[in-house]
């Protein structure tokens, strides 16, 4: 489902003496449907960078990143948008929303974008929020004022609202209490079970052990760090 083939990337800092920082070279990775792969490596080794490249958030200098039938590395913006809408979900560590939009609508948006009716989308969003223990009195409020843990759960609810065939999870269980952590792990398991290809970053060892079929150490893809 997800296939990263010999990918490289560098950053050029034009305003700081045009410094070129190579951050990735020769990265390859394959994730099949129903498989969960953990990216591991020291902080700064490029786990998030690789994940962002797969999502199309960072440009890829060379190589191919196939998600389904789309090569993210060379796709036009609208192809990436279509991919993100129906195929590739991403739960980041940060919630970025239009201020003032009620939480329930934030969660329902991926469904609305894929053609689910407004009432049905809200009903599904409500189910997810309830499962993640977001008190109902908060659903009508914007999540911008929520605590870190609450925002994280809203983010997860949003990321799991639509049944994407491919999922990227960046620390989904960070800053969660044990109950909610268990819920999230169950949700990831369910996504696996329905056949989603998942790439995750988990600092939470136990979560990684419980969910992941394989680990890929990105240190090997990092120029300068690889031995």
């Amino acid at each position: 489902m997800i296939s990263v083939e010999n990918v490289s990337k560098s950053f050029t800092l034009h305003n700081q003496g045009s410094t070129v920082i190579p951050v990735m070279a020769g990265a390859s990775l394959h994730v099949a449907a129903g498989e969960c792969v953990a990216l591991v490596g020291a902080s700064g080794a490029g786990k998030s960078t690789l994940m962002r490249m797969i999502y199309g958030n960072y440009l890829t200098a060379s190589g191919r990143i196939m998600v389904g039938d789309t090569d993210v590395a060379s796709a036009a913006p609208r192809e990436v948008i279509a991919l993100r809408r129906r195929t590739l979900g991403y739960v980041s560590q940060f919630l970025r929303v239009v201020p003032r939009v009620p939480t329930i609508d934030v969660v329902a948006e991926p469904l609305l974008l894929t053609g689910t009716g407004a009432d049905e989308a809200r009903a599904q969003a409500a189910t997810l929020l309830a499962r993640l223990n977001i008190p109902e009195r908060l659903w009508g409020l914007s999540p911008t004022t929520f605590s870190g843990g609450e925002q994280q759960r809203v983010n997860i609810a949003r990321g799991f609202a639509f049944a994407y065939p491919a999922l990227l999870l960046d620390e989904p269980t960070a800053s969660l209490d044990p109950t909610n952590r268990a819920t999230v792990l169950a949700m990831v398991q369910e996504a696996k079970a329905r056949g989603a290809a998942i790439i995750g970053i988990f600092h939470d060892h136990a979560a990684r052990e419980a969910l992941c079929d394989r680990q890929v150490d990105v240190t090997g893809f990092t120029p300068g760090l690889a031995a």
Partner: peptide, 12 residues
């Protein structure tokens, strides 16, 4: 892509 240009800008 908007987020790509903002998060990984290429031009100085």
């Amino acid at each position: 892509l908007t987020d790509q240009v903002l998060d990984d800008p290429q031009h100085g």
